[in-house]
Amino acid sequence: MERFARKAIIFILLMMIIMLPTSLTGCEKEDNNKKEILIGAAASLNTIMEEVKLLYQEQYPDITVNFTFAGSGSLEQQIRQGAPVDLFISAAMKQMDNLIMDGYILADTMVELLENQIVLIVPTKSKFGISSFEDIIKAQVIAVGDPDIVPAGKYAFEIFASMDILDEVNTKANYANDVTEVLAWVSSGNADAGVVYSTDAALSKEVTQIAYAPEGSHNRIVYPAAVVKDAKEETARAFLEFLTTEKVQKIFTEYGFKTLP
């Protein structure tokens, strides 16, 4: 038993010696001469940002850009606790405003980088002839986020109420837990129409975006970006500047976002 125990301990120690060095990289504080930045971005932006990163690395191969993707709320807390985030791209103004108010952000760097919009979608093969939000009553099954828990659902119902078709919609509405579900129902043809974000509509070829929500029918859905205080300011500002260039803005619009004017 002792011999085995000894062998087991040696084996375990060997494994730890092998594994631990790779785990400890990144323990030393960053060398400010080695250009490297960390961008805290909303989870929903992960595919777009990977594409933007490729474009950036082409132009600036010696600057290392890393992203951490998480919920905007988590990112806000992480920045407050001093996490090494250089640039913050939030999915809502709320977290950005909170951080600016408490002095964690260089307020003068903030830009409203992206804007999402509420749109009406139908299956591409749809025969209902729905051409506007009012037409939605022509559908038999309407997919919409549960207005109590899904912001997009809440906006949808506000739009229907303003058009006086709320009661009719309710008789045909299927509530979803999130917009991904709404998109899935419409793209599979299980629903004849649905209300999602323009970025969701851009994800699927099986759906066609019919209309944008009427002007002023909901609060603007803005994704702000700003440089964090006490971070790698120069490189972060430069990257933010890069995000506003035409080539990158084109990528954003391809994904269904409305960009800077």
């Binding site: 323990c27 030393e28 606790q81």
Partner: peptide
Amino acid sequence: LILFGKNGLIGRFLYSVGIQIVFTRL
């Protein structure tokens, strides 16, 4: 995060000697 962050009980000592734990594999 609070414990190992810049102002945390453990974090502040680590930062003062140049060690940053948050956002690493450790």
